[in-house]
């Protein structure tokens, strides 16, 4: 998930989510960057409205939900 967090972080900084910005963030976190994963991420995000996507319940619930903390 770290590539996605990186994208979200760059997005929340109101910066363009591109290869360079994502790589910079991943490197700063001490992650050895895999170029093709970054490329795949950027390709996937092409044309995606991130704001809308993060608030869309996209995944199926996995049966029963957790108890409250």
């Amino acid at each position: 998930m770290e590539y996605i967090y990186a994208a979200l972080l760059v997005h929340s900084a109101a910066k363009t989510v591109d290869e360079e910005s994502v790589k910079a963030v991943l490197s700063a976190a001490g992650i050895a960057v895999d170029d093709s994963r970054v490329k795949a991420l950027i390709a996937a995000l092409d044309g995606v409205d991130i704001e809308e996507a993060i608030s869309k319940a996209a995944a199926a619930p996995v049966a029963v939900a957790a108890a409250p903390a």
Partner: peptide, 27 residues
């Protein structure tokens, strides 16, 4: 919340990463 947001983005944008791939398959 942050995890869900990341997961939602992953599924919506079809970002093939561990942690979301199962959800994308499911979708």
């Amino acid at each position: 919340k942050a995890v869900r947001e990341a997961r939602n983005l992953g599924v919506e944008a079809s970002i093939y990463e561990k942690g979301v791939i199962e959800l994308i398959i499911s979708k």
